[in-house]
Design a protein around this nucleic acid. Sequence first.
DNA 1: TCGATATTGTTATGATCATAACGATACCGA
DNA 2: TCGGTATCGTTATGATCATAACAATATCGA
Lengths: 155, 155
Amino acid sequence: MPRTSTKAAAPVRRVASDYRLEDQVGFLLRRAYQRASSNLVERIGSYDLTAPQYATLARLYERGALSQNLLGRLVAMEPANIRDVVLRLKKRRLLATRRDPTDKRLILIDLTTAGVALVEQLIPIEIECTATTLAPLKADQRRLLYELLGRLAEG
Amino acid sequence: MPRTSTKAAAPVRRVASDYRLEDQVGFLLRRAYQRASSNLVERIGSYDLTAPQYATLARLYERGALSQNLLGRLVAMEPANIRDVVLRLKKRRLLATRRDPTDKRLILIDLTTAGVALVEQLIPIEIECTATTLAPLKADQRRLLYELLGRLAEG
DNA sequence: TCGATATTGTTATGATCATAACGATACCGA
DNA sequence: TCGGTATCGTTATGATCATAACAATATCGA
């Protein structure tokens, strides 16, 4: 006997196998990401950075100079999107761009000194933020979640 | 001895507790949601619907008429966002709006006949799509994932 | 070598997203 | 009842997102 409707103006409709939006992974994933993202913005928002922007900086910090396209793939952004993010971060002098001398198609991107300094300041904050997001879970549950999410993302 | 850099133009930087973007839940959640969302659009894209639009229709189907604000909360969208989604769906005659007679602030929203018909057509597709997204996981892992995601979303 | 094919970055379009500020309406306690 | 407070919907701004079409450059096989 699932969910009771309190005072619906219209009768609740039912489909064969009583469907619930909550049972769809996509919906759950979207809400969980909203939570994680808002946790992050809450902490690094004062730096005027979004989650994708932080991911971009962090990736450059990890890997050093990358082409714009590869950078985009490594942070899971389409070419058109990573372009905009790079432009904004470049305008703030957090990263710099230059042409690849051997392959004229490529734009090489790397952190500036200011960018490196900022990332090193933010990394501890992000680790703390991840802990906050994962707070409802026990240690073994967290490990499990990582494994499951990893499989989903890779397909 | 983690990750080896192949031919980085710049040296790989390291922070104290060798940080990896992949260890941050937010990043994993974002990628998993991307996958789920693209799975859905792949199947219902021919109906010219996005994931949030589908969620909105499905919620109305489940619950019957709702105020715009409550509808937004039930699909995890801010007032400004649910407004735009409602406008687009209304333009396509998939839902209809009317003023609440008792509370002049509210806009009551409900599916049209066409909207109901469309949702009933889409629900089996979405269930199939969820199965596709969850394909990499075994049955007990799926149950586990749902529980873990539920806890994260609720905080 | 040269021509088909693939890759990179750009542009354009449309749909989410979150936030802040605002007027209108409801509610609620003194 | 009446005035402060809360809720609802709107508007504006800026940042993601995905997709398609395009030009420039690389690559690879005949």
